[in-house]
Every structure is written in structure tokens, then in C-alpha cells.
Nucleic acid binder design. Structure first.
Lengths: 341, 341
DNA sequence: CTTTTTTCTTTACGCCCGTAAATTTTATGG
DNA sequence: CCATAAAATTTACGGGCGTAAAGAAAAAAG
């Protein structure tokens, strides 16, 4: 494939000895042409290294093979991981995934949606910012593009895939209450519906078990959750303002910050003797197993969320028609017992 | 902008009362048309919400406004951060960044390069896999597309931007030797030139200071550095196989794993009294300040690397011609003293 | 107000490919 | 070997835009 330069499909078709429409058909679906033709085309491909012009292809296809993926913050390991898994599935299914990050900002989210829409994608997988989303924009987008929403349920799109916060929080509240002091709930200002649901789930679980819910909210905006958790944690610990020595964090990143705060203030974290604090998180972030001590948490089922949302989208694209009513698929979390609580 | 649907530029031009070629000119550069025309177009834009078809635009332009960004592993916070910064600059400079991740695999890197090339980007910013790269593919790509290589110097492209490993490693080796036992060097099998340079820099620094270099390599492939560091660390610590109680890790992610290993085996980390190990890293990863204890490390200058590589690319795109010889820009690291060493 | 310059409009062509219709070739089965 | 079905070819058009050329209109300069 080091031969001369190929300008376009016309030229390539000539060199391969097959007509251009047939070559075009081959590139849409290699199985759709006769075997002998396929082999001649592939022989020519070996020799000449031609690739059809993506722009010209997509200009004329009503159904692009592009799938848009938008997440609120790609530098968050949760999204990085889940995007990795989704990209994978898209490629396997013959789609061309293209990733956007809103970098935590509404204007960039809107921008990404607009750019994405002009790419005329076959579909989109959106994890909206949540509280900071311009819901009207998201809705308008979803009206034009087959859209599955994941992670952050903003009641837009043909379906939602996410975690069952009531189940997962229930699980860990049960565990914590059964094995020691009832937990307080450590959160920052909620950025998306998950945070709210988790707080509510915590409150309900506590009440169900006959405890008084205790919610502690720390100051801080933005996506530097660890810093917020650490700074807030240091203040709360040194002021002895924590209503319980068992702390359930709204997510693992806050928990990582809180563990750092405990270290800095000399409190030993864990469930053994001599430990001052028990700290638990939620999500099972990629880094949760490497904290000191390793973080007890509830896993989000990354694989399941990635798989279900992708499959649902492919289904939606194939069917053409949206489902009769908006589906909401909730994946269950699993208790991940480590040392911190 | 809730008016009727606009099909194409023709229709939009008609509605705005300006001819299509002028509208086309406007979209390429709004300043290039007369003010009165610009205002009429913008008024129509307010009302009708039209966006030119990206595919049709790029098909006819020789110089696309796309900039490709390829990193080896986007779920690594170092790359996530630096991509975030680069994307930013591209958007500011009026380009359209598009991000690819090789997910640590050669076939996906090649795939991404091919896809990227068929997008006819104005330029590309590549952080190659390194040892696992198909250098011939990368080279062929760089011959066609103005390319800046960053992070991993594989001697391809018009320029390289990265860290000065000799400077940064020298800095931390000096510090560690001055304040306690001379460090051994903790690494895994090198995945890219940086890892090799760092080992070499360590060796030289040690010899310069009159110490015997001690390199410890742990088993493990792939991009789960923390796991590799932790598992290797546990083995080395429990077998008392570490040649020094001060350990300089090839990067922060390994160090995070090693700190977890020290915790698990009950060794206290830090430079104070009662500490069994001093552990230092390299990179100043976003998570390095949240380890327990916080990680002493050498920062890579993320901002500088992102800025210089992006600026260099824009310059290259404007100039049209490559620089007389391949530039190599090395950014200096800064010592980041925390508690772990 | 006239001349010069700038900018716009009109017209037209091309980019590279998808795709439809009509025709020809090739494969399949009896 | 022929009839039929399947697949390929030829021909033709269109998509949405860039862009060039020529002439008209508007702005700037005198």
C-alpha cells in the first residue's frame, strides 16, 4: 500500500477494475458485493491505500455512521472510563464515536451539542451537566437526534440509563448501620440529579432503620471534588462539627478528599480498633482501591451502564421509531467492602 | 431563533437578503464582509438558527479547521488534563479539536491516525503510545499532516514538546540525597521514551553525586500503573527486596500504587521520625496531592506543554512550511515538596 | 458630482460521493 | 444448454458548499 496517490473513488475504481457504484457499495457494506468483486477491491486496497472521503460520504448519507458522546467532564475518571467502554462498543458496532466534554461549563455543553448536531449523527449518548445544563438546548437537540441519556437523568431523550441510587445507597447505609455508628451524609452542592437522589435515598434509608438523618454540606463549586472534600473535611474535623464518626460521602471523589483530610488532621480511618473515622463512598472509582486505607464504597456498574446505553441507542437507530414511552433503566450497585469503613 | 427550518445556505441567503457567496464568505470570516451585510446576516441568524453543513464545508476546503489530538490513554489523568488544556486553546484559536484515544493499543492508534487523516485536519497534536507505536504509520501520517508530537518523543513530526526529564529527575534526586538516604528507582517495563530517559537521568544523577544507582523493575504491562505499583510494591516490601528505604518512582501513578502497598504492609510513609519509607514520584498528577501522605514529586508543566505545543502547531499551520529542522522544546519541572519524601 | 476603489451579486463550475434506473453480465438450477 | 435470479455496470442526477469571473452597486476619495 505504498503505491501512487489516489484522488477519489473514481480513480480507485478504475485501478481496481470495478465500477464506482459497486466500490461505493463495497465501502458501505463489504458483504453486499459479490465475492470476486470484493477480492479485487481488497487487492487494490492492499496496493493503493485509498480511503473514501469522509465528508463526501456523510454529506450524501441521510444516516451517518457517527455517534456523538457528550460528558460533563472528561477528566473525571468515572467519565473517562465509561467513555472508554462506550467508544469500544460503538467501534464494534461499526459506528464512529466522537467524544465531547463540556468541561463543566454550560456554554461549552451547548457548543458541543450544536457542533454535534451539525455532524448529523446517527445518534447520541449524553451525560448532561445536570443542574448547569441548559435544558431547553438539550431538549431541542434530543428532538432532532436519537438520544440516550446516561448518568444524569434530566428527563430528556428516548431513554435513560443510570444507577439505582436508592438501591445502592440503601445497601451501604444498611451495612454501615449494621456494623457501627449510623453514618452522616457528606455532600457538596449537588451538581446533578444523582446527588439529590443520593441524599434523599440516604434520608429514607436512615428513617427506615429508625435513625435521624444527618446531612453535612460543604462549600464549593466546580469539578475539583477532591479539593472540596479535603478542605471541607479539614474544617469539619478540626471544628469537631461532624455529627457522626461514620461518614458516607456522596461520591468517591469527595471521599478521597475526606480521607486526605483525615490523614492531615491525624485521624486514623478504618473500621478496626484505634480508628477514629469510618469513611465510605459511592461509585467505585478507578482510584478507590488505591486510597489509604482502600475505600469502602458501592460500585456503579460501569460495564452495564455502558453496554445498556449503547445497545439501546443502536436499537433505537435500527428501529427508526422511538419507544412508546421513555424507558428508564437503573443498574444496581454492589457493595465493595474494603478497609475504610 | 425558533423560526422555520432552513435547508441550506441558499435558503438562508434568500431569507437574509444577502447573496449566497457573500454569506459563504461571512461564515469563513465575519470580518471579511461589509458591516451592513454582516448585521443583516446576524439578524437572520438570530431569527432562523442556521448552521452551515460541516461536511459540505470541509469537502471543498483544502484547509480544514479541524485539529486532531491523539493520546495513548485518555483515562490517565495526565492526558485527560492536558487534552483539556489543548482543546481549550484550539477552540480559542478558532479550530475544532477532535480527540482520539488509542486506549493503549497499537491497532487503535493506527486506526485513529487513519480516521484522523481522512478528516484532512489542518494539523495534529500527537502523544504516541511510544514503545507500542507503529512508528512507520506515525511517520507516514506526519508526512501528510502538519504534526506536533508531545509527551513521548519518537522523532517524528515537525517538533516535539515535552518535559526535560534530565532536569526534573536531577532536581528530585538532588533533593532526596540531600535530605536522607539516596533513592532507588522504581519502575515498570518502560512504555515510552520518557520512562527510559528518566531511568537514565536517575542513573546519571546518582553517579554525579557519588552514589551507586539502584534500579528496581516490577512486572506488569498495560496502563493500570497503580495496580502494578501496588502489587509489585507489596512483594518487594514484604520480601525486603528494596535496596533503599527512599524510593523514587518513575511516575506518580506508580507512586500512588506504592504508597498503597506501604499502607497495606504497615509501613509508614514520610520524611518525619517513625517513617519507614520515603516515596517520591514524577509528574504531579491531579491526584498526587490527595494521597496519604500527600506525594512529594516533580511537576510536569502541563500548562506550558499544552500552550507550547498548541502555539507551535498554529504557527506551523499559518506558515505552511515546516521549520528548517525539527525543534525539541523541553519544559522544566518544579520540585513539589509534600509529605511523602 | 465624478472617479476610483471596495464590496456585492449573478452565474457557473467543481468537489467526491450516494443513489436510482436501465441495461448488461454473471451465477444458479434444472 | 437455457431460463431465471442475482449482481454488476453504465448513465445520470443531486447534495451543500467553495470559489472564480464578470458585471453591478455601494462606499470612499478627489
Amino acid at each position: 500500500m505504498a503505491g501512487r496517490k489516489i484522488r477519489n473513488m473514481e480513480e480507485f475504481a478504475e485501478l481496481s477494475g470495478i465500477s464506482r457504484p459497486t466500490v461505493s457499495k463495497y465501502f458501505r457494506d463489504p458483504e453486499s458485493v459479490r465475492k470476486s468483486s470484493r477480492m479485487r477491491i481488497e487487492a487494490a486496497l492492499e496496493e493503493y491505500d485509498y480511503r473514501p472521503n469522509i465528508f463526501a460520504i456523510n454529506q450524501n448519507r441521510k444516516l451517518t455512521k457517527t455517534v456523538g458522546i457528550l460528558v460533563p467532564y472528561l477528566a473525571d475518571p468515572f467519565f473517562a472510563e465509561i467513555v472508554r467502554m462506550i467508544e469500544w462498543r460503538c467501534i464494534d458496532a461499526g459506528f464512529w464515536p466522537i467524544v465531547f466534554s463540556a468541561h463543566g461549563r454550560q456554554d461549552l455543553e451547548n457548543n458541543a451539542l450544536a457542533t454535534l448536531q451539525s455532524l448529523k449523527p446517527a445518534g447520541a449518548l449524553l451525560a448532561p451537566l445536570g443542574r448547569h445544563s441548559d435544558l431547553e438546548s438539550v431538549r431541542r437537540f434530543a428532538e432532532e437526534v436519537p438520544t440516550i441519556v446516561f448518568d444524569s437523568n434530566v428527563n430528556v431523550g428516548e431513554a435513560f440509563v443510570g444507577s439505582d441510587n436508592f438501591q445502592s445507597i440503601g445497601l451501604i447505609v444498611d451495612y454501615l448501620c449494621r456494623t457501627g455508628e449510623a453514618p452522616c451524609f457528606f455532600e457538596m452542592q449537588p451538581v446533578n440529579p444523582n446527588a439529590n437522589k443520593r441524599r434523599e435515598a440516604y434520608t429514607r434509608s436512615m428513617e427506615r432503620l429508625g435513625y435521624e438523618p444527618m446531612v453535612v454540606q460543604v462549600e464549593g463549586a466546580g469539578w475539583e471534588f477532591e479539593r472540596i472534600g479535603k478542605e471541607g473535611g479539614i474544617r469539619l474535623i478540626s471544628e469537631k462539627a461532624l455529627p457522626s464518626d461514620t461518614i458516607l460521602c456522596s461520591n468517591d471523589r469527595l471521599a478521597i478528599g475526606l480521607i486526605a483530610a483525615a490523614y492531615e488532621t491525624g485521624r486514623r480511618v478504618g473500621h478496626g480498633p484505634g480508628c477514629a473515622l469510618r469513611i465510605a463512598g459511592h461509585d467505585d472509582h478507578p482510584w478507590a482501591r488505591f486510597t489509604c486505607p482502600p475505600l469502602t464504597t458501592v460500585s456503579q456498574d460501569y460495564e452495564a451502564i455502558a453496554e445498556k446505553s449503547a445497545d439501546l441507542l443502536f436499537q433505537l437507530i435500527d428501529k427508526g421509531a422511538p419507544p412508546p414511552r421513555r424507558e428508564e433503566i437503573l443498574c444496581e450497585g454492589k457493595l465493595v467492602l474494603r478497609v475504610s469503613a
